[in-house]
Design a binder for these strands. Structure first.
Lengths: 320, 320
DNA sequence: TTGTACGCGTTATCAT
DNA sequence: ATGATAACGCGTACAA
């Protein structure tokens, strides 16, 4: 890559003069200026970004870290982050877990947004600081320079279940997700709490294990069908499992919602196709807001107070 | 962020000694070594990646550039790239157009994979070189250090159309994509050429404009329905438009494939749901191969010969 | 206009 | 066994 030195040599001037021309300063003769500019053009000179920031230390770049390639909504989050940064004159780099530690250990980015669960808190605490604030999504880290942006699972799931009860449902089935995940725990707890609040008994036999995959929802529904004891309504901890369940039920000639109602969680792209009643998590917005919170911390105006994002219920046709 | 100097100060030793400990050299006393290690642990020392690479110049990191957030398959490409790099001990950073020029103008990455159409050839030519090879996807740039990895639209579309002719179809309709796009041009040309080869006449009235969006496919099919002159089969330049067309046809009580057969292109996630016959482009593999080609160029063993990737037909139930 | 010190964090070399 | 310091790369800024 051709640098300022190459240009200086080719133009037979000093690097300072080249620098002055590039930065539009006036202390350069017209002839020299034009000569240098034409040589820059010829040789395809591109200023080295790192060299430039060496003095100022400001790259105006932040890093976003994720690692799960199976969920299309990650692109939505990136888009939200990207848009906010673009509007505010900042740059984004995205990295997957293995590379992000290297990037975060450089002085290149000025902050980070972390989604990847594999990025452990200890590491985050060790790199976070006044000059490197971090926003973590969907988890909470107690640190002065780490802020959490989390989607509220609990209240919206309470709302959903309460609304269903208000519609008259009493016999519930539940397909859970990976049980160590916070998402699963919060959603399931909200479900249990709301039933209890309404004095509705939930039989543990109507709980089915899943792992958030469509396949696991399919299997769970197969088992449920074999039990010969269909609940009125099946709540699934996410859309993928709900869709798997729908497929299994349809294969066994059950009609939805006539024979059984179903709800999901996520509002994935497939949810609309299946007319699935679900909970919409504003992915784009959460990315946008995470970026906003991070930039405010970089500018010194933000706080490390957790930021909560509300999800909303999407009523479609899988509920009677 | 705590650096080697901070550790040296805290341990009351020189930076050299700290460096020696960190790099596992043996010329350090046991007591000093342990003291330094424990202080590193305590203070959460993380070696600065850029500082380290300042000497070697080798970051073993490459950059992938894209900008379209609407297509979920981009994640698949990233996954393919990521996997290859991981297997080969390299790191990946992903950037969107606005930030990638800065990154490429740093000496941070050692090569780039470019998917974004907005990244113009002139810029690529100016940064490409023996120390910075580039792989471009889905376009061709003539440069010693720029290699193309392209998906072959033409032959697979010829195959698809020929197979349909062999099945007995004679009356074709076509919904095209954005006409300036290479994808559209190649697919459409293959369609026309194959019909001509089989002496089948294609009426231009059966060509409908689209822009690759579902909405445009829906509109095109609405117009087609109004024409009261349904072809036997409707070929769509991508899946989104095919799905839009299916929705429009179903709304008007046409059965697929009884009343009209339909094909798409892409094998998007929705294609399976709609049982759409389409062309599967191996996204993961193309990312993986692009990374492989790039790394070979970095290692000095690759060439700038274009690399072609074959797509395959997925027969499903929207074709009689 | 030019020469050159400076900034970043680490590593390598040579002294002590 | 430990320390002092130059070097790495590239552009900027300031004195000459």
């Amino acid at each position: 890559m051709v640098g300022i030195k190459d240009i200086a040599k080719a133009a037979e001037v000093s690097v300072s003069t080249v620098s002055n021309v590039i930065n539009g300063r006036k202390n350069v003769g017209k002839a020299t200026r034009e000569k240098i500019l034409s040589i820059c053009e010829e040789m395809g000179y591109q200023p080295n970004f790192l060299g430039k920031t060496l003095k100022s230390g400001k790259t105006d770049t932040i890093v976003f870290n994720f690692s799960d390639f199976d969920r299309a909504f990650y692109l939505k989050i990136i888009e939200g982050i990207n848009d906010y940064l673009l509007e505010n004159g900042l740059d984004l780099i995205v990295s997957t877990t293995n590379s992000s530690q290297n990037i975060m250990r450089s002085n290149y980015p000025q902050g980070a947004i972390i989604l990847d669960k594999k990025m452990d808190n200890k590491f985050l605490v060790s790199v976070a600081g006044p000059d490197f604030p971090i926003v973590v999504m969907d988890r909470i880290v107690d640190h002065n320079h780490i802020k959490s942006v989390i989607v509220e699972n609990y209240p919206v799931m309470c709302d959903l279940v309460q609304s269903l009860i208000d519609k008259g449902f009493r016999e519930f089935g539940y397909i859970g997700g990976i049980e160590s995940s916070l998402d699963h725990q919060e959603r399931y707890q909200a479900f249990l709490d709301t039933l209890e609040k309404n004095d509705i008994l939930f039989h543990r036999t109507h709980y089915y294990h899943g792992d958030f995959s469509e396949e696991s929802g399919y299997r769970a529904a197969k088992i449920l069908i074999l039990s010969n004891n269909l609940p009125e309504l099946l709540i699934c901890a996410n859309d993928n499992m709900a869709i798997g369940a729908i497929k299994a039920l349809k294969e066994n000639n059950y009609s939805i919602p006539e024979d059984i109602s179903i709800t999901g969680f996520d509002d994935s792209s497939m949810a609309e196709t299946y007319e699935l009643t679900t909970v919409a998590i504003p992915r784009y917005e959460s990315g946008y807001l995470a970026a906003k919170e991070l930039v405010e911390m970089i500018r010194g105006t933000g706080t490390n107070q957790s930021f909560k994002i509300n999800a909303t219920i999407k009523w479609r046709n899988t509920v009677k």
